[in-house]
């Protein structure tokens, strides 16, 4: 029996889809069976980021409205045998998906896969409710910006009312020089405001944009900073203890991590 994790943020554009693609890829790299679900009906993106757009024939709405079997709608990744994607519908009405339908799909996928990663749409309306309906765990993505942290806080509040484990936090798009100058909210401050466990930090890396434009998740690259960060998140999901990445641009990326953790503790 697998585990369903929803990736959510409230605010749009903070990197939910990128995070979904890369955590999924990271878990697949560690030989886990992973299925990604895109629940952003009408504005699907996960297929594009994964480079699987051309293969879509059926989508989640076809499954819910029983025009096809769940297996038929799953798209096998071109790099991993046990990484699949259930794409969102691009043309259907949002109301086509229901919480009940999502629960059924997620439950069925959990039989087959170790991890079901659900990409949530922005906002807190029905799409959000659908996305979290079948999830066991939640990961909240935020950036070091006030508006994004505010929305993340709202989402954490909503998640607390659901029958779901306490959410975990990913801080995305960290710009080191701005944080140093105090122009961005400090990681510690974000963690303090949201008071949920931090599961990873990802620096703002040009490679992420490059990778998503070419349909190859950045986690596949051997040593770009964002790639390591995402793979570390995947390892932490699997229960490994991995120190946080240093933000410094010097050699020995892992050297300063202890200091970092020291501050937190």
């Amino acid at each position: 029996m697998g585990e369903a994790i929803v990736i959510t943020s409230g605010k749009g554009g903070v990197g939910k889809t990128t995070t979904t693609a890369n955590i999924g890829t990271g878990l697949a790299l560690m030989d886990k069976k992973v299925c990604l679900i895109d629940t952003d009906i009408g504005l699907r993106n996960l297929d594009v980021v994964m480079g699987l757009e051309n293969r879509i024939i059926y989508d989640i709405v076809d499954v819910i409205e029983e025009r096809c079997k769940l297996k038929q709608a799953l798209i096998k990744d071109k790099r991993f045998d046990y990484l699949s994607l259930l794409p969102a519908a691009q043309t259907s009405d949002k109301s086509a998906v229901t919480e009940e339908g999502m629960r059924k799909i997620v439950a069925e996928l959990k039989q087959e896969y170790d991890y079901v990663i659900i990409d949530c749409p922005a906002g807190i309306e029905q799409g959000f409710k659908n996305a979290i309906a079948g999830a066991d765990k939640a990961i909240v993505v935020t950036t070091p910006e006030k508006s994004s942290v505010r929305d993340a806080d709202r989402i954490v509040g909503l998640l607390e009312q659901e029958d779901i484990d306490p959410p975990l936090l990913v801080i995305n798009r960290i710009r080191n020089h701005m944080m140093k100058n105090g122009d961005m909210i400090e990681i510690d401050d974000i963690v303090q405001i949201l008071s949920i466990n931090l599961i990873g930090i990802v620096v703002d890396d040009d490679d992420v944009i490059k990778a998503s434009n070419s349909g190859e998740p950045v986690a596949l690259q051997p040593n770009s900073k964002a790639s390591i960060a995402y793979r570390n998140i995947a390892r932490r999901i699997l229960g490994e203890t991995v120190p946080l990445q240093s933000l410094e641009d010097e050699k020995g990326v892992f050297q300063k991590v202890k200091k970092f953790l020291g501050i937190r503790a």
């Binding site: 480079g51 757009e53 051309n54 293969r55 024939i57 071109k78 070419s214």
Partner: peptide
């Protein structure tokens, strides 16, 4: 095209750019 479909036939673009 990302896909061409004629009657019940489907073909899709190659994975490489």
């Amino acid at each position: 095209p990302s896909q061409l479909r004629i009657a019940e036939y489907i073909s899709r673009a190659p994975d490489y750019e």
